[in-house]
């Protein structure tokens, strides 16, 4: 790792001021991606501004029919939250599949969402549940927040504060892991929300997380695995690498969507 300076931000204003004062600063969550990237010298920020101690970023609350997760909540906190387990078990279950127990004790939801790794799990939950991302500058529907692989609507000096998940009627997540890295090779999140069915796919799209409109329309008239099992995905929209071809991933989307619908019941 190249030399860097570290500072803890005490408030959102403090974090923004510290970033402005830095040559090439970056906000730091739990560091489970950024520090690993810095160790490989693939990133070399002059300053790290730790946002995880900012009070507004802490805590998990239930507000009516919505669960609000502070951005500094670790994956373990999400996985073990009694409120989330009771009201949105699909989310606690998804969090429990991220990395491993030690990584989950450091990594944060805000960090994962801001990074928007194409194989990350949370983006599928946000898109599948029509979550709202509240930042230091405003708020975004998940749809407008994720703009491409490793790309989001965030400005350089914008901090995710919290993420609000409307509780769906039912939902399920089917994760198909790369057997070596354990990251999603293709994973599908399905939900029946107040505004109808939603199907979100991570790990496979060549533009990052995406919805499958044709599957959502089919589920609106017939919520069953059969409704989606005949719908194919265009391989031209899929990632292709040593771990799986575009055709293979496209096939997985259909198979996993059907499994997820069956699992949701």
């Amino acid at each position: 790792m190249y030399a860097t300076k570290y500072a803890k931000a005490t408030s959102l204003q403090d974090a923004v001021a510290k970033l402005a004062a830095a040559d090439d600063g970056k906000f730091l969550g739990g560091g489970q991606t950024l520090l690993a990237t810095m160790k490989q010298r693939l990133a070399a920020p002059s300053d790290l501004i730790d946002v995880t101690k900012i009070p507004e970023l802490k805590g998990i609350t239930v507000e009516g029919d919505t669960i609000v997760v502070g951005a500094a909540s670790t994956h373990s906190e999400v996985a073990q939250s009694a409120d989330i387990q009771r009201l949105l078990p699909v989310l606690s279950g998804l969090a429990a599949t991220i990395g491993d127990p030690a990584v989950r004790n450091m990594g944060t939801m805000g960090g994962s969402v801001a990074n928007n790794d194409p194989a990350a799990d949370y983006p599928a939950a946000l898109l599948g549940l029509n979550a709202t991302v509240t930042t230091s500058k405003g708020s975004y529907a998940a749809e407008e927040f994720f703009t491409g692989i490793f790309e989001t609507a965030l400005d350089e000096d914008e901090i995710i504060v919290k993420i609000a998940f409307p509780i769906p009627q039912k939902a399920a997540y089917e994760k198909f892991r790369n057997p070596a890295s354990r990251y999603s090779l293709c994973s599908v999140f399905v939900a029946m929300t107040a505004d109808g069915p939603r199907v979100a796919v991570t790990g496979s799209g060549n533009d990052g997380v995406f919805r499958v409109a044709e599957m959502e329309a089919a589920l609106a008239s017939n919520w069953s695995a059969d409704a989606v099992s005949g719908i194919t995905i265009d391989p031209d929209t899929m990632l292709s690498d040593i771990h799986g071809s575009a055709e293979y991933r496209a096939h997985l989307v259909t198979v996993l969507a059907a499994r997820a619908v069956a699992k949701a019941g």
């Binding site: 560091g31 690993a36 790290l48 127990p101 030690a102 990584v103």
Partner: peptide
Amino acid sequence: CTVHIDGKAVKSCTVLATQ
């Protein structure tokens, strides 16, 4: 490299001491 920080297991190769 697993150690406990405030009672929780973490991988100490991917945590800064200052953190």
